[in-house]
Design a protein around this nucleic acid. Structure first.
Lengths: 186, 186
DNA sequence: GTCTATATGCAGATAGAC
DNA sequence: GTCTATCTGCATATAGAC
């Protein structure tokens, strides 16, 4: 794997996170990543759609890995997820509300306007949901209930990120953390 | 109120809902709204930021009114909100996943890049949260708990819309409806 | 209030040298 | 693999007639 290619992907993901797909220009990506301008179309010959799709999918893998790492061990799901959401709240706050969920904006912008990017977003969300689902299954939940709860968890977290970034306050995500762990307990 | 001006605002909101802020061009708005091209800068002399901000805020008022209308009456919150989220699921499905939440994409795109539009998004979310909060207060909940639950409800619904639009399936929103009403019951 | 024409800039993308 | 130069098109915005 080329380090230049990887640098482009990571910078792209970070800009998508901050401002979405259409607001992110290729020139901006080159500039922010301190990457040779000639490299972009060398590594991504199919252009912006390819670049964004790969960045989204890679971000999905990274996030899923982080979720799994955080949920590993014997801590009960309600507690582990509570801690995890609080960590997201801290991270969103630490970024001055410029970061948090690299998928959301892109997913909404492209749900019905770019099949290729939509497919990448879908795959990425599936990775995240599966990460929570496996933890719930491991704790003994029945399959259907684990699947439903995993979707609900992702939805609540995504919504919490939207509110926190919009309000410029970590509070909505902290509320989500508490309510979500309460919901898991019942 | 001018009908032309109102037509521009409504078309803008609908395009923002489908594809976000930066993907929505002023020419596209004129075309889709069948509105005289010369009118745009006549009614919105401060340009796109003004237009988008007003469209977002108007959408917020419309949605808050709809929430209040749906929650009016003596139906307990858990049941009323369950029905309401199912209706959103139907609407998202009926739009072929092109619509659902006119705020989300714009809010994420502009949280740290346009103070003016961000302020409009914040005000719009506050209207939605207050609509749920008032229903919960009316049903006898304590103030702090009503506020927290209202935020959680909005977060879960927003997240459900994202998942449903991305997955091209109403199922995630239906899952959110069930889990949310279960969470409210406990 | 609405029109046409246009200014200006940046977007994504390509070509061909090195 | 990376460079520079450049093509084409559309973006927002403005000017001035009617």
């Amino acid at each position: 794997m080329s380090p230049t290619r990887d640098q482009i992907l990571q910078t792209t993901a970070s800009l998508l996170e901050k401002q979405g797909c259409h607001a992110t220009g290729l020139n901006e990506i080159i500039r922010e990543s301190s990457t040779p301008k000639g490299s972009l179309y060398y590594y991504f010959p199919e252009g912006k759609e390819q670049l964004v799709s790969e960045a989204v999918l890679q971000a999905g893998h990274t996030m899923a890995d982080r979720i799994r790492a955080h949920l590993a061990g014997e801590t009960p799901p309600a507690q582990a997820i509570y801690d995890f959401v609080l960590r997201i709240a801290d991270n969103v706050e630490a970024s001055s509300f410029a970061a948090g969920s690299p998928l959301t904006a892109v997913a909404m912008e492209t749900a019905t306007t770019s099949p290729r990017i939509n497919a990448a977003c879908r795959a990425a969300f599936d990775l995240l949901i599966a990460a929570f689902e496996d933890k719930l299954l491991a704790s003994g939940l029945e399959a259907q209930r684990a699947s439903n709860l995993a979707q609900f968890i992702i939805a609540a977290i995504e919504g919490g990120v939207i509110l926190s970034r919009t309000m410029h306050s970590a509070e909505p995500l902290r509320v989500v953390a508490r309510q979500l762990s309460a919901a898991l307990a019942c």
